[in-house]
Design a protein around this nucleic acid. Sequence first.
DNA 1: ATGAAAGCGCTAACAC
DNA 2: GTGTTAGCGCTTTCAT
Lengths: 341, 341
Amino acid sequence: MSKETKPLAAGRVTIKTVAANSGVSVAAVSKVLRDAYGVSETLRKKVQASIDHLGYRPSVAARGMRGQTFTIGVLLVEIANPFLPLIIEGVNEVLAESNYKAMLAVGQSDMKLESKLIESMIDYHMDGLILVAPQLQGSQLARFAKQIPMVVIGHHEATATAFDTVNSDDQEGAAVAIRALFEKGIRDIAMLSPVLDDPHAANVITQREIGYQKAMQKAGAASRARILRVAYDAHLRPPEIVELLQHRNRPRAIFCWSDLDAVHVVDAAMQLKLRVPQDIAIIGYDNSSVAALATVNLSSIDQSGKRLGSLAGERLLSRISGRTTASHVLVEPSLFIRKSH
Amino acid sequence: MSKETKPLAAGRVTIKTVAANSGVSVAAVSKVLRDAYGVSETLRKKVQASIDHLGYRPSVAARGMRGQTFTIGVLLVEIANPFLPLIIEGVNEVLAESNYKAMLAVGQSDMKLESKLIESMIDYHMDGLILVAPQLQGSQLARFAKQIPMVVIGHHEATATAFDTVNSDDQEGAAVAIRALFEKGIRDIAMLSPVLDDPHAANVITQREIGYQKAMQKAGAASRARILRVAYDAHLRPPEIVELLQHRNRPRAIFCWSDLDAVHVVDAAMQLKLRVPQDIAIIGYDNSSVAALATVNLSSIDQSGKRLGSLAGERLLSRISGRTTASHVLVEPSLFIRKSH
DNA sequence: ATGAAAGCGCTAACAC
DNA sequence: GTGTTAGCGCTTTCAT
C-alpha cells in the first residue's frame, strides 16, 4: 500500500476526512468552520456539504489547543439556591444567539473546591467565565481574571479592573424593604442574617446588612436596628428561628437576607400562633417560587435574576471579543408585595 | 542563540517547563502525572517537587487529544426541579474521592438542545456522561452510548445494553402512596400528572402512572382510577389545579406526580377552604424541602436522590475503567409521612 | 528505568 | 483564493 493511500483513522470523522471527502485542504475546511476570511462561495458550499454528509463535528479539545473552544464556564456557589435557575436561564438566552455553549460547575460553598473548579475551567481552555456569588476574595478573583475573561455576579467590587461585575443593588434592596415596613407604621424592624465566616464588603449579604443599617438610620430608628444571626448551616436554622420568635424581645418585623429563611420565619410564626403580618411582619429576598404559594404568601425583594444572567452573558461575550476596560452594572431591585407585611 | 537554549514560551507552565526544571524528559513527567508504570521513586519525587514549585497544571484540552480528561459530564433536563441538587451532591461525593471532576449542562427540557449538549460533551472528550431524566429516546441514547461511557438516571430501560441505568422504583413509589391512602380508608384516589408530549414507558412519570393504575387495580378500585391531566407548562398549572378542586367530581385524595404540583394542590385546597386531609388528602413526590414546611406539611414519596447520584457516579467510574456489561439498579422509594394524608 | 519522537485534530503563518 | 506546514501540550510506542 503506497504512503499516499494510507487509510485515515477508522472511526472518527476529523477535519482531514472532510478535506479528503470534499477534495480541498484542511486549512480550507478550518476556514469554513470558523467563517474566516478568504474562502470562495463555491468552496464553502462544497465543504459544508461534506460536513453535513459526514456528520462532522470539530473536536473541542483540539480546538482549545490553538484557538477558541466556544464554551464558557459558569461557576455556581451551590446549587440549591432558588435564584440560580433564573441566572442560568438568562445566561443561556444570550448564548443561544451566539455559537457559545455554557458548562456549569458547582462549588458547594467551598473555597478550595471553588479555586479548583476555576482552574479546571481555565485548563479546559474555556473562552470565558461567569462566577456566581463566589466565596473567593477580590484579589484571588483578579488573579484568575488575568488568565481568562471573567464576569462576576453577586460580588460587589465596582473598582475591580481585571473583571466585570453584575449585581443587584443589594443595599437598595434592603432599603426598599425597610421603607415598605415603615410605611406600614412599623419601626421595630430586625434583620435576619447568617453568620458569615469571612465577612467582606463584596459579599451580597453584607451589602444587604449595610443597606438595612443605613435605612434604619435614615428613618431615625438606628437604635432599633439589630441583626439576628443564625447558623451558616441551613439545617440548623429552622429551630433557631423558632427560638428567636419565642424571645420576649421579638421584633415587630423581620427583614430576611433570603427567602430560604423567610419561609421558615413564616412557618415558625404559624407554629407559635402568631398572626402574619399583624403580630409579625416578614419580608424576604429573592422572590422565589415558594414565596408565591398562597400558604406562604411572602412579600419579597425581587432581584430579577434572569436579567443579571443575561447582562453577565452579554458582558462576557464583549470581553471575549476584546474589550478590556472593566464594566460594572447595578440592577435595581423591587419589592414584590404579598400579604406578609 | 543556539538551538538548545531557545526559551520556552514565556507565559504558561507546560510539561516541558517541568521537564526542564527537574532535568528529566517530558515522557517521564507524563508518567508521573498519570501514576503510570515504570518510574523510580527518586525520579517521581524530583518531578513532583518541580510540579509543586512551578504550580504546574496539565492542560485538559491537550490531554483530551490523546488520553483522558478526567472530567465527566452531567446533563440535567432542567435546573429548577428540586430533586436535582441532591443527585448532584451524590455524584460529587463519589467523584471527590477520585480525581475526576463534574461539569454540568442544562437541557432546558428541549430535545434538540439536549442532543447538542451531549455531542458537545463528547466533542470535549469527556471521559463519561451521566444523563438525568433525559427526554431523548432509548435508541438515541444508545447511539450516543457507543461513543462514550454513559449512565442514565430517571430513564426506565432495564434492557438497554449500551448504557447503565439508575432509577428509583417509580411504580413502587406510586404503589406505596396508594396503599397508604387505602390504609386510611380512602378509595377514591385520583392521580395528577402533566400532559406528556411523547409518553413512553421509560419515562419516570409514565412509570408512576403505571404504578398508580396497578395499585388501584390490586386494591379493587380500578373503576375509581383516573388521571387528572394538567398542562406541561408549569406556569399554567396552578389555575388548572384550582379548577380541578372546584369540580363536583373532586376526588377524595390526590396522588401527585411531583411536589412541584402537590404544593399547589395544598394551596388550592386552602384557597377553597377545604381541609387537608379531612376533605382532601394529598401525597406528593420527591420529598422536597417545600413539602417539609409547616405551612405545607405535605406527605411525599422520597426517592433518595443523593443515593441515585452516588450510584450513578460509581457505575460511571466502573464503566470508564472498562466494564462493558450493562448494569441496571432500582432503588426503593419510601413514604415520608406528614399531615396531608 | 528513562528518553526520543511520532502523533492526536486543529489553527494560523506563510507560500503559492 | 487555496494549500503547506509548523506547532499547541500532552500521551504513548519504541529504543536504549
